Amino acid sequence: MERSRRSQLAHAHHPIAAPLDDDAVRRLIGRAVTRDGARLLDLGCGQAEWLIRALEAHPGATAVGVDIAGNALAEARAQADARGVGDRLELLEASAADFTSDRPFDVVISVGAVHAFGGLLPTLATAREHLAPGGSVLVGDAYFLTDPTPEAVEMLGDYEDLATTVENIAADGWAPVYGHLSTRHELDDYEWYWTGSLAEWALDHPDDPDSAAALEASAVHRTEWLRGYRDCFGFHTLVLRPTKG
């Protein structure tokens, strides 16, 4: 089953595509986007839910979303048009790491997409290239709540604990001005949505060529979560401002 299709189906009922509830998303957008005329950029935007919600909250803002998944961008376009912000949202099917622009952005977003840049600090380095003076970066990524098992590291990657993660960000020339740590409810809710939405689609579409693969992917992911990384996985979403050029 093609990865971008699986991701779109798994996020059908949770389009923010990260373990955050609506109140957390609203607060983070409010702290990152501080004026209505802001220019926003989401690198690895998926279905562009962060941008759509920001545009809904800030009628004078404009936004650009970049992603390699054409199916996700098609859904983003449909949602943006249906919710009345389509005329202020530009969507580009391209590599987020290779995106260029001749104008800077007041807010650069990359939540759950740092793999596209090779890690958190490379993501921030790319964001810095696009950031206007006085701008903010809204970034979200994993960290380890407790010492992970070797199996968890193999599944997720070699993350740091929260304190080390924030220290590395600060040493790289960034000041956190706001942050959210996903709660146990948010983390579990996200996984139930991911696995459940995929299984639900498979059961509702038994004749689709991807049905069996989707059901298997749901089951495998659920086991990896419950047996492998549930107790050690955390997720931070931070609003950052540069302390140096």
Score class of each variant (00 low, 15 high):
A96D: 01
P209M: 08
D158S: 08
L138Q: 01
R77S: 13
A219Q: 09
D81P: 03
D22C: 04
A63V: 09
D102F: 00
S197F: 00
A142C: 08
H180G: 00
E2Q: 11
H115R: 13
A72S: 15
A213L: 12
P148T: 07
E224W: 06
G135T: 01
F117D: 03
A48F: 08
L40H: 06
Y143C: 15
A212C: 09
V177T: 15
G134L: 02
A96S: 04
T100Y: 03
I169A: 10
G119L: 09
P176D: 00
R5M: 10
A142Y: 09
A80T: 03
A132V: 01
W192M: 07
G140V: 09
V66H: 07
G60Q: 04
G228F: 11
V107R: 04
S7K: 09
L40Q: 02
R88W: 02
V111E: 00
G245F: 05
F105V: 01
R128E: 15
Y229R: 02
A163T: 12
T34P: 03
F99A: 10
R27I: 01
G46I: 07
W225Y: 13
T183V: 04
A12L: 10
V111C: 12
L40G: 00
L145A: 14
R77H: 15
P104A: 03
A57T: 04
P104I: 01
G119V: 02
V166A: 13
R3V: 10
R39G: 05
S95V: 01
G196R: 02
V139E: 02
A96R: 00
E167V: 14
F233T: 12
E200G: 06
E167N: 06
H58L: 07
D189S: 13
A214I: 02
G46Q: 04
T237Q: 13
A82C: 12
E56R: 12
E224Y: 01
V166T: 11
P176V: 15
I16S: 01
P122E: 01
G65I: 08
D141P: 03
Y159M: 08
G70M: 05
V64L: 01
W225S: 03
R184W: 08
V108T: 14
A54G: 10
S218H: 02
H58Y: 13
R222F: 10
L138C: 07
D102N: 04
V166E: 05
R53P: 04
T34C: 11
G119A: 08
E167Q: 14
A17S: 15
D204Y: 00
L162N: 09
E160C: 12
G119W: 02
